[in-house]
Each structure stands twice: as structure tokens, then as C-alpha cells.
């Protein structure tokens, strides 16, 4: 494995009696797309929040570019970005205004060429003058992704970026992400409930259940170990059984 860009060691987050992330350790090499998967409440979003320093860990450590996220948070944030289907941009600003503001926040000196190039890449160049609140969810997702690429991030954290998108637009988004990864070697940590999408996009997957790692490897490896035809079947098994192999098989 190449030098990891992300290293997670014994990461644990407890909220009172609930353990959201339980002694999680993994590493992500440069240029990999890692699918962080699992049923609702598995700890995916909390893990992303820990990696972004939005939440402080109870124990363990998350390092990005070799820097402790808690201690060197702003140095890390300068080089990463985040997008989620569940957050938005100020609705009463136009697309251009929103991207211009965030370009400044990420320290871009001449934002216009970068904003226009990204808008072209994500197919929203003709929407930049439109107020963000008037955009469809697909257009808004692409605007959010433009925001996420503004600082030319080396690591991108994406929380269900294609949720609520129609299949056509979701496909465009996936292709764009793949292209960015190929061209620029961006490392992407990706959560999704769409297992077909994960199979097509992710180099490696990491399944969580109740905050713990249940399985990791390439999608094909994981399917073979679980003796399942699709990643969706693996997901269902983990969601129901909390483990990769069927409990009856294990007993047998």
C-alpha cells in the first residue's frame, strides 16, 4: 500500500452510553475511493465528522496527511473538502456568489477562472446566475460538488452525495468523481446506501456495524467472503446479522 493519506487508529466516539464508533482503525492510500458503508446508525457519518474535526474522539486518533485532525485541524481543512446531500448553501445567493464566497474562504486569489472551470465540469455553467434556492436538487448537488472542488482538495469526504438524485444525474456525478480521481489523484471517502453505485465507484469498501469494522476490501473480495452475488446482499446481511457471514453458517 502506498503512503496512506488518512490513518485512523483506535478511533472511538461515545455519546453517553452509546458507542457510535468503536475502536476503528483503517488507512486510505492516496488516490483511492473508499466506500464507508453500513446500515443507519452504523457510525459512518460520525466517522466522517471525526475525520473533519467536527466531533472530538473519546479515544484514538485520526490523521490526515500525517497531521492529527484535532491538533492541526485548520491545516487539514485547507487541503480537504466535504459535501453532503443533507447540507446546503445559502439559498438567497446565486450559484456564482456562493462559489465566490467559498473560494475566498479557501484563500483563492483569482476565483473566477476556477469557478467557471468547475461549473463547466459539473454542467452548471449556465446556472451560476440563478439564485441557489431556485435550483433543483440535482443542480444543487452539482453546485455543492463545485464548492467541494474549489480548493483543489487532496482528500474529499462525501456523505451520500447522490441521494435524491435521478439516475441520470447520479451517473454524471459518479463519472465526474471518477474522472477527478483519475486526473488529479484525489482521495475520496464516500458514504452511500446505493450499493450498485458503490460497486461501480469504489476501489475499496469498509463495512461498519454498531461502530465497528465488519469487513473491508475490494467490493469483489467482500462479496466473495460473504458468499453473496451483490454488494447489496452483503449490506442486507450485515444490516440484519451485524456480521459478514450468516450466523447459522458460522454455527454450522
Amino acid at each position: 500500500m502506498a503512503q496512506p493519506v488518512i490513518e485512523v487508529t483506535g478511533l472511538t466516539k461515545r455519546f453517553g452510553a452509546t458507542t457510535a464508533v468503536d475502536d476503528l482503525s483503517f488507512a486510505v492510500p492516496r488516490g483511492e475511493i473508499l466506500g464507508l458503508l453500513g446500515p443507519n446508525g452504523a457510525g459512518k457519518t460520525t466517522t466522517l465528522q471525526l475525520l473533519l474535526g467536527l466531533t472530538t474522539p473519546t479515544a484514538g486518533q485520526a490523521r490526515v496527511f500525517g497531521l492529527d485532525v484535532q491538533r492541526r485541524r485548520y491545516d487539514v481543512l485547507q487541503r480537504v473538502n466535504f459535501s453532503s446531500a443533507y447540507i446546503s448553501l445559502p439559498t438567497n445567493l446565486t450559484g456564482w456568489e456562493n462559489l465566490h464566497v467559498f473560494a475566498r474562504l479557501y484563500g483563492l486569489r483569482r476565483p473566477r477562472p476556477r469557478v467557471l472551470a468547475l461549473a463547466e465540469t459539473f454542467g452548471i455553467a449556465d446556472l451560476l446566475d440563478r439564485v441557489t434556492g431556485a435550483l433543483s436538487s440535482g443542480q444543487l448537488t452539482r453546485l455543492n460538488l463545485c464548492k467541494a472542488f474549489l480548493n483543489d482538495p487532496e482528500v474529499l469526504f462525501l456523505d451520500e452525495p447522490t441521494a435524491s438524485l435521478d439516475p441520470d444525474i447520479a451517473d454524471v456525478v459518479r463519472e465526474t468523481l471518477r474522472a477527478q480521481q483519475r486526473q488529479r489523484g484525489v482521495t475520496i471517502v464516500y458514504t452511500s446506501h446505493n450499493m450498485r453505485e458503490v460497486e461501480r465507484l469504489c476501489d475499496r469498501v469498509l463495512f461498519l456495524s454498531r461502530g465497528r469494522e465488519v469487513a473491508s476490501g475490494t467490493p469483489r473480495d467482500v462479496m466473495e467472503r460473504a458468499r453473496q452475488q451483490t454488494l447489496e446482499d452483503v449490506f442486507i446481511r450485515i444490516a440484519r446479522d451485524g456480521r459478514l457471514t450468516d450466523s447459522r453458517e458460522a454455527e454450522g
Partner: peptide, 18 residues
């Protein structure tokens, strides 16, 4: 408050804004 209303607060806190 407005950044919470419009769900933009996370965008600000994941940007390198102190």
C-alpha cells in the same frame, strides 16, 4: 442562526475558517 437555518453552518465549519 441564519447559517443553521439554511443548512450552511457545516460548510463554514469544514472550511478553514477560525
Amino acid at each position: 442562526t441564519e447559517d443553521i437555518w439554511v443548512k450552511n453552518i457545516i460548510n463554514l465549519f469544514v472550511a478553514p475558517v477560525r
